[in-house]
Amino acid sequence: MSSIVSRNLKIYFRDKSAVFFSLLGILITVGLYFLFLGDTYTDGLADFNHPEIFMAGWIMSGLLSITSVTTTMGAFGTMVQDKEKKIYKDFYCSPIKRSVLTMGYIISSAVVGLIMTAVVLVITVVYLAANEAIVISAMLVVKMILLSALTSLSNTAMALFIVSLINSEKAFSAISGVMSALIGFLTGIYIPVGNLDEGVQMVVKCFPTSHSAVLFRQILMENSLNEGVKSYPAAAQAEALAEVKDVLGVVFKFGETECSAEMSLLILVGALVVFSSLSIFTLNRKKTA
């Protein structure tokens, strides 16, 4: 198993252009934000103290939640390629179980997701601490690491399910391209969820990865939002805070009910379980063919 995982990892990391393209979704987000979206948002939030500080936390939360979507998709590319080039024929004629082989692909993709998210995590923490948006504490670091891990695994399962439906490299590159472009909208990180219309908001709120972004925001924006809202008179602070949290998607509301942090966690775990089971089902069905 370990040699198959290391093979898949080597294939992924050595193909520099594949790594680049699997990071494209992230690069697009960063580019958009720093080039023009960032200013638009902070201008709209001019009533707050230093909106650029909590918006930095906002954008980094989004990045952390989607990094493992596009990178694990990229890593699963090896699986599609092996199918297309009939490399799996060589594996099937070796004394190695097919389930071990499949697990090899899954574990290596999860590892790719974890590594890439870890890199973004370090950048996030350093960048936000340098901008005084967060105060680094042991608690914060532990929470961030656990949430990053859960996000990566949940996203790996989702990517696996998508890839398990694909048979050709052409379809794979088309779908991963669409995913890279769409993921920022689906998770409400290009445009704050409150600025979208009702129907689209619902889509964002039901998309599991969005809940990872929500949880990251709750950790990373807590301090800076509390600071930012101090520009309001004391009586209006609570209301302003609730509103900005709703608009930026720090808390999701379904109707009038707030979605709690526990609920969001449950949705991520649920996605992990459901997508894994679905993938096992589709992969097994194909094996018999």
């Binding site: 198959i4 080039k85 060589d90 004394p95 190695i96």
Partner: peptide, 18 residues
């Protein structure tokens, strides 16, 4: 059926480990 991006040694070693 070998991986073009990996070296000769890596390719044969990975398949050997199976």
């Amino acid at each position: 059926v070998l991986d073009p991006i990996l070296t000769v040694r890596e390719n044969v070693t990975i398949r050997g480990s199976m």
